[in-house]
Nucleic acid binder design. Structure first.
Length: 426
DNA sequence: TCTGGGGTCCTAGGACCC
DNA sequence: TCTGGGGTCCTAGGACCC
């Protein structure tokens, strides 16, 4: 029995080792060299070039535990440079969009494409062309999987990446081929199967994607929820997950950081919390929405004795995206949960109960001009957009401070700062 | 000494309404 | 024909993704 509708064709384009590849684009001497990129505060390894993967470096390895190893093997180390990666991502995505109008930008380094209307050409040829043009224009290597559903396109992509012989492109078509592939595909590598589910499935004798595909509907739904059932159908070639071309507005927005050094003073925390609240405001304004609930949390290191973690959820009198308001209420919340003599290592601010511009509830007791704060924020955002984030900020956010990021191995912002522009010598 | 950050969705269970 | 507490909202918690 075949469920395959040959007229629908999804593709997943995934940048190979994205952060590491971005760094390599601007340092060609790193070609064929091992590269790792670290998380904020140079904490953990979050990206690795193939060479680094082959050395046994793992995603999430704490950097300090690997310091000697990295040095000994002359691994190139970078702090995360999100300005660079974000800009490179835009270049990759706009290149793809130029050739395939139906595109869903799924993450900073992945996009789903709908190739259905483009398969006058053979899909494998088309995918290969896309891969080449992206590499040529941006310098970023990508892998491409093509299949009748998103979940199968993920499978195809996974295999394309791992086998050199299909040159980074794999088209899955026909139920026979799909079954053959799924029979050898570990269930834990499926999109939507994490550690807990894979342990559970293993215990129940399900080790391959094909076994999951063949499990009874009611059993899958009972234990893996409706999401699991959808996944099962998708593995059968029945598309349940449509392409989402316009990202829906976020339902919650947050900003949190681990501090470079522990913070004990209330003043230090006030700076950090103000900065996070202001950032939440920026993000809200970016998607034209307002929030009515703000949550503040602070915590000490969970790896140390005397762990303290607390949060305060506060309802705002009226939905807002005005940074001074958000800062004011966040600091009020901080007062309630702050405990002296703690070495705080992390803090954050979340905003939720988000409404769109038109949905704001007025407040009877609200005073003053509604337009003025709006104009002020628009002006601040415009300056920061042009001159770089943090050019204009509120005094309470402070400058310096032990909580700010450690980024000792930061590469230049080659594509977003004039002063960092790459200089080519003849 | 040193261990990231930002999201999504689903379900169960309780409160409350009729 | 079958003849039963049902429906809605909210929250906490747990799974997942990159």
């Amino acid at each position: 029995m075949s469920f395959i509708k040959p007229d629908v064709l999804f593709s997943l384009v995934d940048c190979n080792n994205f952060y590491a590849s971005c760094e390599r684009v601007f340092s060609p001497k790193l070609e064929h060299k091992a590269i790792v990129v670290l998380s904020n505060n140079d904490g953990c390894i979050v990206a690795r070039s193939n060479e680094a993967k082959r050395m046994g470096l793992k995603m999430g390895d704490p950097a300090y535990q690997r310091k000697d190893f990295l040095k000994k093997h002359e691994v190139a180390i970078f702090s995360s440079n999100y300005a660079l990666y974000g800009d490179m991502s835009e270049r990759v995505m706009s290149t793809l969009a130029e050739f395939v109008p139906e595109i869903e930008i799924y993450s900073i380094d992945e996009a789903f494409l709908n190739l259905t209307s483009l398969v006058q050409q053979k899909p494998d040829k088309l995918a290969l062309q896309l891969k080449e043009i992206v590499k040529k224009r941006t310098g970023i290597p990508v892998s491409i999987g093509v299949a009748p559903t998103k979940t199968l396109a993920k499978v195809a992509n996974h295999l394309a990446k791992r086998s050199a012989e299909n040159s980074g492109v794999l088209v899955l078509s026909g139920d026979c081929q799909i079954r053959r592939v799924l029979e050898n595909f570990p269930v834990e590598d499926l999109w939507g199967i994490g550690l807990q589910y894979s342990k559970f499935l293993e215990k129940n004798g399900i080790k391959t994607a094909l076994q999951l595909r063949n499990a009874p509907d009611y059993w899958v739904k009972k234990h893996l929820t409706i999401m699991g059932l959808r996944m099962k159908y998708e593995l059968q070639g029945i598309s349940c997950l449509p392409l989402e071309m316009a990202p829906p507005p976020k339902k919650g927005i947050g900003c949190s950081r681990t501090f470079r050094e522990a913070v004990e003073s209330k003043e230090g925390l006030r700076e950090a919390i103000s900065t996070f609240a202001a950032r939440c405001g920026e993000k809200l304004r970016q998607q034209n929405s307002y929030s009515k609930v703000i949550t503040v949390f602070i915590r000490t290191s969970p790896f140390q004795k005397g762990y303290y973690c607390n949060c305060k959820v506060a309802e705002l009198p009226t939905a807002t995206n005005y940074s001074p308001d958000l800062i004011r209420y966040a600091l009020k919340a901080l007062e309630i949960i702050y405990k002296a003599n703690c070495r705080y290592k992390k803090a954050g601010v979340f905003v939720s109960d988000i409404t769109t511009v038109g949905g704001v509830q007025g407040n009877l007791f609200e005073r003053g001009d509604r337009e003025k704060p709006k104009k002020l924020m628009a002006a601040v955002d415009a300056v920061n957009e042009r001159m770089g984030r943090g050019t204009l900020f509120f005094a309470v956010q402070g400058i310096g401070g032990e909580w700010r990021l450690k980024q000792e191995k930061l590469s230049p912002c080659y594509t977003t700062k004039w002063k960092d522009l790459l200089v080519v010598r003849g």
